[in-house]
Each structure stands twice: as structure tokens, then as C-alpha cells.
Write a protein that binds this DNA or RNA. Structure first.
Length: 432
DNA sequence: TCTGGGGTCCTAGGACCC
DNA sequence: TCTGGGGTCCTAGGACCC
């Protein structure tokens, strides 16, 4: 394996831990009768499939499949369908990540269902394969969630190892280690180019055109060619896959942008209805900003018609607004977002989606107040109070510009209970 | 009728300046 | 025939991720 991943005598290793079919697995934890049955979870508005159990995958239900097209299929094949329940998934994720952090002091929570752990020096003291099996058993016992573990000297190789663990659950028992030069090459030759982490549709298509159809062949390309075609990002990936430790754990970054965007259940053409939507997004954005203690100085507002309806006139409009002062007050954000909306709105179009994005975030405690334009200091106290009411008491405070009749409520017809975060929904165990 | 949402990073090229 | 040149900043858009 060369010496590229060794420093002194300490062997450097990473583990990538990934929850299997996470959302579908979460639904199963609280409804064990679903074990062994096909389960799918739908996106917002029950639009398309975003998670599938292995049984659902085997039935040929593809990722992103529009739910309405598969409705009959679901019924015919006995597929259990759920609306996405982020309160449940977020809570289950936190439990899993908490336990994982007991197994290494160095952890990067990469996404809701994935973490990298650093195992530097562990190999001298543990059988890593065995250690991985312990992690799997512990997570299963304490949360009910099945996971896969890939162990390797670099992060991108950890991804490869994880994929092998998932693909051969019986042989690997859910854990696979790339721990020699031979196993690295064998694993890369097995990995299709389009399955490599960091190589998406566009790049894999271009690589396939020059007969680069697996990850090993990709690592044999000249550096300057890779850099030219795929920029510095591609070159870093090539070196990391070759066994050089290029990618390392990343700290949870403070977000640089915060977006709130939604598709509507139905088309909207009335500007007053759009105002209500945009105001609601602005409030949500304010909450997100305050949670990470940031203010924004720029907001971006956009409107889209339905791109799937080629029979209707299409329009994409957007505007970037520089705010006079950094803010995270929902009241201000509503005002600015609405003014943006009025600049881009055009009569005569049926809009399907709108969104706002907060940009150029600054820490809340570093506000630069300008002399004449600044925010109303009363907002600060008001927002604190509202956040407290919303998060601590379960009350929902609404603003005047919001719809009070829940007319816009997302379609979530098949929502499971919030088993783990809502007392009324807690699971009942009946003993006889 | 019905097709998700929220992020990051990099580069090319234009605007502008001296 | 020949039409400066180089630096910086900004933005749009492409590519990727889960």
C-alpha cells in the first residue's frame, strides 16, 4: 500500500458508516410488521420516491420515481408508502450519531445518515473488522437501525469499502475493510465509474466515452488530464482513491447559505397568494438563521413555472437583494422578500415553485450597524420570544401575513406518527 | 390532476481599474 | 499587416453531494 497513508508507525484509517435505506428503516423501527416488506418514503407533497427498502428496490421502484405514476404498482405489489417524517428521521439520526461518537473521538457527521470516523492508530490495538461488527450490533440494539461500515486508509476508499459491505451483506456481515494494496486495487476494479463518490452523471459519461469504466482505470489517468477535465476537485479525488490521504474530516461548518424553497401543490398565479408563501418562507428562514446565530446581508428570491408542463408558458425569474443591514428578524425578512417578489412577479404565468435563499451570512454578534438604517432593536426580543414559544411550548405563532387556515399545507397523506418526538405519538406496548 | 429540498465548491469570463 | 496588458473582483453556471 506504499507509505502514503502511514505516518511514522501509526496506521491511519477511516470508517464510513452509513445507515441502510435510512428513512425506510426509521419507519420500520416503530412498525416491525414492515420488516421484510417493500417500503418507500415520498418527498414533500408526496411527490416522488426518495427512499426504498431493499424489497422495494428489488421490485424495480427507482429513486425519484414520481409517486402518481407508480400508484397502481404500489398497490399491486403491496408496497407500504409513507410521506416523509423529518421530525422522526432527524431524531433517529441524532441517536445514531451520538452512539457512533463513542467509538472514536474524531467524527464528521457527513449527512443525516452518514458519518466518517477516524481510526488512527486503532489497527495496532483492534481487529478493525471485529470493531466494526461491534458498532453494527450496538447501533442495531440501541436504535433498531441497520448500518454498513466501510474501512479504508482514505475517505473516498472508505466509501468504496462501504459499497462493498452493502452489496455483499452475507459475506461481509455489513463491514468491509480495504487494508492492503491488493484489496484496494481489487475494490477499485470492482467499482463502476458512475458509482464513485464525486463522479456524477456528466463526468462518468465523459469518462465512459474514453473507456474509463471503473474506478481503477480512473486512478491510472494522467494528473494533468484529470485536472483539466474535472478541475482540482477531480484531481484530489484521484489521489485520494490512489491511497494518498487528501480528504480529511471536516468540521461542521457554519452554513454559508440558507435556503427555503418549496413546490406548490397546485399552480399559483395570484400575486397575493405568492406573497403569503414568500412570507412563510421568510419566517422559516429567520428561524434557521437564528438557530445558527447568523444574520444575512443578501437575499435571493426566485419564482419558477412547472418545467414538466411544456404545454404552459415557462418563466424563471430571480432577484438578488442587498439588505441595508444584516438581519435575522422574520419581520424584516418578510418585508425584503416581498419587495423582491414584486420585482420578479409577472402576470399571466402559472407558478409552481418559489424560494428564498439567505446569503452572505455574518455572525449575529458582529452586526455592523450603520448610522441611519438599522433594524428595530425590539425585533430581537420579539424573535426570541417567538422562538421560545415555538420550540418550548409546542404553540405555533403565526404572523399576520401568513395563511391562518392552513390552506397551503403540504400534501402528507401517509405520514407516520412522530413516535420519538411527540408525547401523544409515543408507541404503546400492551402486555397481556 | 400529480414530478423534492438543501447544500458546497470551482471556473470562465466580463467589468473595471491603472 | 498592426488594435496594451495585467490584476482584481464579481457573477453565472456547471458539477457534485445526500
Amino acid at each position: 500500500m506504499g507509505n502514503s497513508h502511514k505516518r511514522g508507525k501509526v496506521l491511519l484509517m477511516y470508517a464510513l458508516i452509513d445507515c441502510n435505506n435510512f428513512y425506510a428503516s426509521c419507519e420500520r423501527v416503530f412498525n416491525p410488521s414492515l420488516v421484510g416488506k417493500p417500503v418507500v418514503v415520498l418527498s414533500n407533497n408526496d411527490g416522488c420516491v426518495i427512499a426504498r427498502s431493499n424489497e422495494a428496490k428489488a421490485l424495480g421502484i427507482v429513486m425519484g420515481a414520481p409517486a402518481f405514476q407508480f400508484e397502481k404498482d404500489f398497490e399491486a405489489k403491496g408496497v407500504h408508502v409513507f410521506s416523509s417524517n423529518y421530525a422522526l428521521y432527524g431524531d433517529m439520526s441524532a441517536r445514531v450519531m451520538n452512539i457512533l461518537s463513542e467509538f472514536s473521538p474524531d467524527i464528521e457527521v457527513y449527512s443525516i445518515d452518514e458519518s466518517f470516523l477516524r481510526f488512527d492508530g486503532f489497527k495496532e490495538h483492534f481487529n478493525l473488522q471485529q470493531y466494526a461488527l461491534e458498532i453494527i450490533a450496538r447501533i442495531k440494539r440501541d436504535t433498531g437501525i441497520p448500518i454498513s461500515v466501510g474501512i479504508a486508509p482514505t475517505k473516498s476508499l472508505g466509501k468504496v469499502a462501504n459499497k462493498i459491505a452493502k452489496k455483499f451483506p452475507v459475506r461481509t456481515q455489513g463491514a468491509y475493510a480495504i487494508d492492503s494494496e491488493e484489496s484496494r486495487i481489487k475494490a477499485l476494479k470492482w467499482t463502476k465509474i458512475e458509482d464513485v463518490w464525486g463522479i456524477g452523471r456528466a463526468h462518468s459519461k465523459r469518462l465512459q466515452a474514453i473507456q474509463i469504466d471503473n474506478a481503477y482505470k480512473f486512478t491510472q489517468l494522467p494528473n494533468d488530464y484529470v485536472q483539466k477535465q474535472m478541475s482540482i476537485v477531480g484531481l484530489r479525488l484521484k489521489r485520494d482513491l490512489s491511497g494518498e490521504r487528501i480528504l480529511d474530516l471536516e468540521k461542521i461548518p457554519v452554513k454559508k447559505n440558507i435556503a427555503v424553497t418549496r413546490s406548490f401543490k397546485n399552480n399559483i398565479d395570484d400575486v397575493r397568494d405568492l406573497e403569503e408563501r414568500v412570507a412563510t418562507y421568510a419566517i422559516k428562514m429567520g428561524e434557521k438563521l437564528r438557530r445558527q446565530k447568523s444574520c444575512c446581508t443578501v437575499i435571493y428570491v426566485f419564482l419558477h413555472t412547472n418545467q414538466h408542463r411544456q404545454d404552459l408558458a415557462q418563466l424563471h425569474r430571480a432577484v438578488t437583494i442587498k439588505l441595508p443591514y444584516p438581519t435575522n428578524s422574520s419581520i424584516d425578512l418578510i418585508k425584503f422578500a416581498k419587495s423582491g417578489l414584486h420585482r420578479i412577479y409577472k402576470e399571466g404565468y402559472k407558478f409552481k415553485k418559489a424560494g428564498i435563499i439567505a446569503m452572505e451570512l455574518t455572525p449575529e454578534n458582529q452586526k455592523q450597524y450603520t448610522l441611519f438604517t438599522s433594524e428595530n432593536p425590539k425585533h430581537l426580543i420579539l424573535m426570541k420570544t417567538i422562538d421560545h414559544l415555538n420550540t418550548q411550548t409546542g404553540q405555533k405563532v403565526k404572523f399576520g401575513s401568513q395563511d391562518l387556515k392552513s390552506f397551503w399545507k403540504m400534501r402528507r397523506e401517509r405520514l407516520s406518527p412522530r413516535y420519538s418526538t411527540r408525547l401523544e405519538d409515543i408507541i404503546k406496548v400492551i402486555c397481556h
